[in-house]
């Protein structure tokens, strides 16, 4: 329902941070980390534009609620231990 300008604050204010947007719904391919080959260098973690990689004991863990499947982590990983897999084949 459109609100009258009088009911609105001066600028739109949201009380929820943008974590409310589950961007993982956009994904068609997902990153899969080969833990054997991973050197825990954190490069993928640094590059993920959605901060969707968490470090658990230094190891990258993908938060699939937010990962959009852009593939940047796979591209940047010097060990080439992240592969992108089609969602319907995952």
């Amino acid at each position: 329902m459109t609100k009258s300008y009088e009911e609105l604050p001066l600028t739109p204010i949201s009380t929820e941070p943008s974590t409310i947007n589950l961007t993982g719904l956009w994904r068609v391919i997902r990153p899969v980390v080969d833990k054997e080959k991973c050197k825990k260098c954190k490069i993928c973690w640094k590059f993920c534009p959605d901060a969707a990689i968490k470090l658990v004991d230094g190891e990258p863990v993908i938060d699939l609620r937010y990962c959009k499947g852009c593939g940047i982590c796979a591209f940047e990983c010097p060990q080439k231990c992240i592969i992108m897999v089609r969602e319907d084949e995952a």
Binding site: Y5, L10, T11, P12, I13, S14, T15, E16
Partner: peptide
């Protein structure tokens, strides 16, 4: 100010609005 960002109270300012509400903010 009436509203401000405070620690422990996350808020977004200047958030996305749909076409049904944009003009009202410009009018203000």
């Amino acid at each position: 100010p009436e509203y401000k960002i405070e620690v422990g109270k996350p808020m977004g300012f200047g958030s996305l609005v749909k076409p049904d509400q944009y003009m009202e903010f410009r009018y203000k």
